[in-house]
Design a protein around this nucleic acid. Sequence first.
DNA 1: CGTAATTTTGACGCGCGTCAAAGCTTGTGG
DNA 2: CCACAAGCTTTGACGCGCGTCAAAATTACG
Lengths: 256, 256
Amino acid sequence: MEQKVVKLSTIRQACSECNLFQLCLPVSLENDDVEMLDQIVQRRRPLARGEHLYRAHDEFNAIYAVRAGAIKTTMLSPEGEEQITGFHLPGEILGLDAISGSRHPCNAIALETTSVCEIPFDNLESLAAQIPGLQHTLLRIMSKEIFEDQEMLYAVAKRTAEERLAIALLSFSERFGRRGLSSRNFRLPMSRTDLANYLGLAPETMSRLFKRFQEQGLLHAEGKEVVLKDMDGLHELARARPVTEKDHRGGRHSKA
Amino acid sequence: MEQKVVKLSTIRQACSECNLFQLCLPVSLENDDVEMLDQIVQRRRPLARGEHLYRAHDEFNAIYAVRAGAIKTTMLSPEGEEQITGFHLPGEILGLDAISGSRHPCNAIALETTSVCEIPFDNLESLAAQIPGLQHTLLRIMSKEIFEDQEMLYAVAKRTAEERLAIALLSFSERFGRRGLSSRNFRLPMSRTDLANYLGLAPETMSRLFKRFQEQGLLHAEGKEVVLKDMDGLHELARARPVTEKDHRGGRHSKA
DNA sequence: CGTAATTTTGACGCGCGTCAAAGCTTGTGG
DNA sequence: CCACAAGCTTTGACGCGCGTCAAAATTACG
């Protein structure tokens, strides 16, 4: 028992906030398993702001867990237009979208000084075959990613700019909260422009939104520092529907 | 060797076009493995159009592979507004977004008479621990789903209505083609309204788009029957950016 | 066949993208 | 520590794509 605790701290050292282990450990890890995990995790020198962790079309070898800082993943259209597909905060994992293609489909760029740990995928995969809890955890993490991407799709497809921002803010709030940080008072790691890009909006729109939210007393923002002042109001917005309250058109799908 | 072929056909019978096996088999399956796989796959009676395969919040027990027909997955906003998060054609798998939450986050509804096979997840998971190829396949499939969801997000966040339709049509084209059906001449399993919903558009817009595409000679449509007449034109549209740019390149982004 | 659901068409308006230009930061070098 | 450049953010003006409303036409299904 006590030995296990020691091992736990070893891991924490290697990959302090890593979701993978956090999710995995509660399940069922023997001491040996922990040791094996510990061995395959690589440390890396921190990335400077703007530095690439990997680029699109790079060969896929490992997934990464953010320890500190933040990373954006982007796709580039043929014309060179950037689309941000995700922000990755401490404790979150990236690179999972590359497994099937064996090359990274997107770029991963540090938004600020960022340290990650690298988890070579081949090793992880063979470990997962040996450790049932680990396999399950891997699948869970990927499933969650799928779910969240779909939620995001939902958000962008059907919501107004206002609603998208509310959703995004609440998402960050929750993610910071989960990490033990304040969920009402945090520093957004990305620029307004990046946030706008992610949400499918123009930077100008984002700027006007922040202004409006501030006027409405929903939040207070100074640069990247944000204080959410009216969580209920934000939740309201995040759930709201585009315009009329009444159902437009009687299409219902309950036939069975 | 010959024995293996026999076993293969056994599987085909149980789950004719199932991606899972299609992707898995090329890897490395022993006869015993095949037999085990065969055993866990469940057949089900076909679903009638409009019938639910599962509902949001249902307990998650299994993933499903579509054998024939088509299924849409939807999320419901608190107000009862439907958002379609995906269409699932024969050979495609659904339910992967439920693993992490242990409940289905969305509804799965048959668009027409549809038969699926059910793959109990617990069994699959323990099999995957025994069969390395299977574990890898599972991870690949999920990774691909993540990638495609992100592509879709990209599409919806940044493209005009026109571009979204072109993208969607080409996606269906490719998926039908992959199944050995015509990639230029097919029957869309969903209503225009559903397609519009999926792409984040109003049904009226969808209707006007089809009309315009037809006028421009891009396609011919009669009800759900569609003939793509100008693949190049569609690809052009799908790649186009709102602003002025006619950069021109044969290179496609590698999918899968 | 009749009724309901879906698709189509036209008119209209608003949200948000685009353009342009003026503040602000942030980072760098002297 | 200041000055300058590059990049962000903000603000205002303006227009258009696409959502909304309304209603007719068509199709699907019991």
